[in-house]
Write a protein that binds this DNA or RNA. Structure first.
Lengths: 148, 148
DNA sequence: AGATAACTCTACTGATAAGATAGACAACGC
DNA sequence: GCGTTGTCTATCTTATCAGTAGAGTTATCT
């Protein structure tokens, strides 16, 4: 699961992407329109500023705007920044690799082999979609009763 | 990320799959060979028995064996059983759907649209692979320096 | 310059869940 | 009936997450 913080981050960035090149957007506007706790959002946006995805302007008429064009911010980037990894196990991460606890040697671990493949497919999908893309609000192929 | 418990579960089931039709395997054997804390494994295996994936035999020469043929236990099944969902957000789960906290109305949530698609692709992949399948220990296409 | 509207930073708190363990109990087989 | 093996429920500990507090910094307007 994505953490609440990651979800807030994505929604905040989407909000800014929708207002790209319209000047700084105030924190309070983002918080109220996106239904994100104000104080928590300050923490989130400050991190995004440090990462360079967002630019802030202080003082009167200040606020936030994206530091890159929406098309250059891919969902994969955001999740990697906030969650550290797209992988489902630490040992299958490509940029934040660590060994799992109480595991077998990595070379013998079949779970790892599977998770590496899965990570790559997930990354490929998330890196195809950017903040500039419209996203179908409902997946077109929802099948009633399917598992998941 | 998968929880430690889910990882232990998968490794334990793989262990049993590798010994399918060789008679019951004792808990201590699984624990030591798979490097899983013994007491924790009792909890895990008891749950699998309740779910029907594993059959237990008590007394002398007791132990555990799979309740279904390895080919009939797919990784997607195991993760759904232990984690509840394959989705990255609660509102994108197909069999354990719940609303996210502090979210926008679901119909307006672009994050949800994306996550629904991702969940379906993940599920498709995990449901193609069963405990009977050999798994490449390293994904063949690992690229040095790739992100993830 | 000063008031004010913004953002920034670090630390803290409270709640929850995860990982792991303990220990009494139940079945099985010789 | 005795040892072996699994079953169940409660508990402990620790880490993480969500969210808050509050003092500090910068920019703008007048």
């Amino acid at each position: 699961m994505l953490s609440q913080k990651t979800r807030y981050t994505i929604r905040a960035l989407q909000h800014l992407a929708d207002r790209w090149r319209e000047g700084p957007v105030r924190l309070d506007a983002i918080a109220s329109e996106q239904n994100i706790p104000r104080k928590f959002l300050t923490v989130i946006l400050s991190e995004m500023v440090r990462e360079g995805l967002v630019i802030s302007h202080r003082g009167r008429d200040g606020g936030y705007e994206l530091g890159l064009a929406p098309v250059d911010i891919r969902y994969g980037d955001i999740i990697r920044l906030t969650r550290g990894s797209l992988a489902l196990v630490p040992c299958a991460s490509r940029n934040a690799h660590e060994h799992c606890n109480n595991c077998l040697p990595e070379a013998d671990c079949r779970l790892r082999g599977l998770m590496l493949t899965l990570r790559d497919e997930t990354a490929a999908m998330l890196d195809r979609v950017s903040l500039a893309d419209p996203i179908a609000l409902e997946a077109a192929f929802v099948v009633e009763g399917e598992q998941g």
